[in-house]
């Protein structure tokens, strides 16, 4: 009887050890799998392209109706947008002339300084959103352009309103975009706050879902930051080109130690309402 009990105890120990072993192995595999830097393997790419193709065919009529309803839903904003456009139209001639003058000046400066390539020279590739954040924690959208269209990892994705995110995964016909609202620990962006008189550098560190605000850290407590100051990319990390608008300052708080300021900004893009995006591609990247 006692030997039976002893045997059972050993068996239970082994079972616990096996379970712990399986958990460790699984976590090791997952730690590799969930990395944004991981490239999709060929079988994964082929499977994803195939499944997305079938999904698009089946859902086409529903998506068509959905898009029509979405456009109708946005009709209420058309009058307001029209008024803004009308007011901007008056300044069009002036801006056109200014733009031409600046182009000439820029060309002359580039020739003088022997600059062959500028970070701001990008071409825009248009793409439509085909899937939106189904996994919830991943904060990604899938677009209908892939490596066959020249899309590569880490390219910046924008809309007319500002920065959306960056490309993390590509297949032949689709790409995944990690949104700037993702609370991923690797999702840090170098930014500039234009305070009117001075430019303050900081780092975009996270997103508060409740207030729909992005947080900026690393701003000196001596700096004066006005509400509604424009925040855009600094171009320092070489991932996003400089000058892409991210949002406007909503409020400023002192950090826990009183040494720096935490700035909350409202993103210019409504991340839940993105249907068409542009991918920034360097003009000399054509292959």
């Amino acid at each position: 009887m006692s030997s039976k009990k002893k045997k059972k105890l050993i068996d239970t120990k082994y079972i616990i050890l096996i379970i712990i072993g399986i958990i460790i192995v699984l976590l090791s595999i997952f730690s590799f799998i969930v990395k944004d830097k991981r490239n999709l393997s060929k079988p994964e790419q082929i499977l994803k392209d195939g499944i997305v193709f079938v999904e698009n065919i089946i859902l086409f009529p529903f998506k068509y109706v959905g898009n029509e309803i979405s456009e109708l839903y946005h009709l209420k904003d058309v009058y307001k947008e029209n008024q803004i456009l009308k007011s901007n139209l008056d300044r069009y001639d002036l801006l056109y002339t200014q733009n031409n003058e600046l182009k000439k000046e820029l060309k002359a400066l580039r020739e003088e300084m022997n600059i062959d390539y500028m970070l701001s020279e990008y071409e825009y590739l248009k793409a439509s959103v085909i899937n939106r954040n189904v996994g919830y924690w991943y904060d990604t959208i899938t677009i209908n352009k892939g490596s066959m269209d020249g899309i590569e990892k880490d390219m910046a994705v924008i809309t007319s309103k500002g920065l959306v995110g960056k490309i993390t995964k590509t297949t032949n016909t689709t790409s995944d975009v990690k949104l700037i609202t993702s609370n991923n620990s690797n999702n840090k962006i170098s930014i500039i706050i234009n305070n009117g008189e001075e430019e303050l550098y900081g780092i975009l560190t996270g997103y508060n879902e409740k207030d729909n605000t992005l947080s900026i850290e690393g701003i000196s407590s001596n700096s004066e930051i006005k509400t509604d100051s424009v925040v855009y990319t600094s171009g320092l990390n070489d991932l996003f080109p400089s000058g892409i608008i991210i949002g406007k300052v909503k409020n400023v708080e002192k950090d826990n130690y009183g040494l720096a300021k935490d700035v909350n900004i409202t993103p210019t893009n409504n991340m839940s309402d993105i249907t068409v995006v542009s991918i920034l591609k360097r003009k000399d990247d054509k292959k």
Binding site: K63, G66, Y73, R132, V134, E209
Partner: peptide, 16 residues
């Protein structure tokens, strides 16, 4: 498929 479809359109109508 319904999950994929609703995940696309619900945020547009319901918001963030």
């Amino acid at each position: 498929l319904l999950e994929a479809l609703l995940s696309n359109y619900l945020p547009i109508f319901v918001g963030s």
